[in-house]
Simulated scan of single mutants.
Amino acid sequence: MTESINSRCGYVAVVGRPNVGKSTLINHVLGQKLAITSRKPQTTRHNMLGIKTEGAVQAIYIDTPGLHAGGQTALNRYMNRSALTALRDIDVCVFVVDRMRWTEEDEMVYERIKDLRCPLIVAVNKSDRLEDKLDMLEHLQWLQDKLPQAEIVPISALHQHNLDTLEQLIGERLPENEHFYPEDQITDRSSRFLAAELVREKIMRQLGAELPYQMTVEIEEFKHEGRILHIHALILVEREGQKKILIGDKGERIKLIGQEARKDMETLFDNKVMLNLWVKVKKGWSDDERALRSLGYQD
């Protein structure tokens, strides 16, 4: 290792309720898209590391599924377990909340993190949208009273407002350590995993409320042939009607999903991509522990 003992390195769990902006925040901090995003809650299903090395500081961000009430299916229970697992042995916790709102699910996250022994930072997202600064100050004071041990930072993940302040606070609170990962490594996840997530993102952005939660993506082939990267992705749904919705009239919807996913893949992998998508019905996969494990949903 070339780092001096003055170098800092550690794990930063980014937690919060579903759809509060955790993945958007991590993507902007990293300066590139790793975590998928959509306006639908529970877009993130797995813990994923995003690694940022800047000078002597290496911050290893853990993007977690949103903690949510209820655990009706095996998939819901898996996501809650994944989010809670990320809180073990972390060095800094960033709790993302939404400007003036405090929901039942925010309270649920608060109950999980209030007794953590590591430094806690509350990132108040979308704070740039507030017109009434007095209301904002009152809400920040309310948060400070509720979490007296925390540092409160108003940010906008989408517009990158105040992210430098947030990163500085995180860096100062990481322990002195040699770096755990090479300087140029940006994630712990495989290219196959990232490809599957990009396809899933495009589906979530295209489709209505129900289908995205009963759908998953599996990469069956990922290989280079000359200058072209060939990727074959299998999309699993639970019912025949969902398959028809996903394919769309004359295959138009699946074609659009493929086009959008391929563009992002070419940017991420810096390669020309040939992407083939198939849709298959696998009844009950989201509530079958064995099926989930075979699809990569493992603690």
Score class of each variant (00 low, 15 high):
Y213W: 14
H230N: 12
I113V: 05
G71R: 09
G248A: 02
H68S: 12
V199T: 04
D89H: 13
P212C: 04
T85G: 12
A261G: 02
E220V: 14
T24C: 07
K126S: 00
E289R: 15
I247E: 02
V96S: 09
E238R: 01
V281M: 10
Y297C: 06
V273W: 04
I60N: 03
A123I: 11
V97K: 02
R81D: 05
P182L: 05
H161S: 11
Y61A: 05
S190Y: 06
Y61L: 11
P65C: 04
M108V: 04
D132Q: 06
Q149I: 09
E260L: 13
M108N: 09
E3R: 10
S4C: 11
A150W: 06
Y213R: 15
D63N: 11
I113T: 00
H232R: 13
D145A: 15
I60P: 03
T2L: 11
V281G: 10
R117H: 10
T64I: 00
I203P: 02
S156M: 05
C9L: 12
G226W: 13
V199K: 02
G50E: 01
L174E: 08
C93W: 03
Q160F: 08
E131I: 04
D270T: 01
A86K: 00
Y11E: 01
S127R: 01
K223E: 15
K40I: 06
H68T: 08
M1C: 03
I152Y: 06
A233P: 12
Q168L: 07
L25G: 02
L166N: 01
D188N: 14
Q185C: 13
V92L: 03
L134S: 10
M274Y: 11
M265E: 03
P175H: 04
R101S: 09
P65G: 05
E105P: 10
F180V: 05
D89R: 13
L295N: 11
R45S: 13
K263H: 12
Q160K: 15
L277M: 12
A150T: 08
S156C: 08
V14Q: 03
V122T: 00
R129K: 07
N125Y: 05
I170C: 07
R17F: 00
E167M: 11
I5Q: 14
E151Q: 13
V109P: 08
R129G: 01
L211G: 04
Q42S: 05
N271C: 14
E111G: 09
K52P: 08
L295W: 10
V279C: 15
I170V: 10
R45N: 12
T53F: 01
H179F: 02
W285K: 09
R189C: 13
L163G: 03
M274S: 10
P119M: 12
N125R: 06
Q141L: 15
D115F: 02
E104D: 12
G284T: 12
E220I: 12
H68A: 11
T165W: 02
R39Y: 08
A69S: 14
S294W: 15
K282M: 10
Q144S: 13
Y181Q: 06
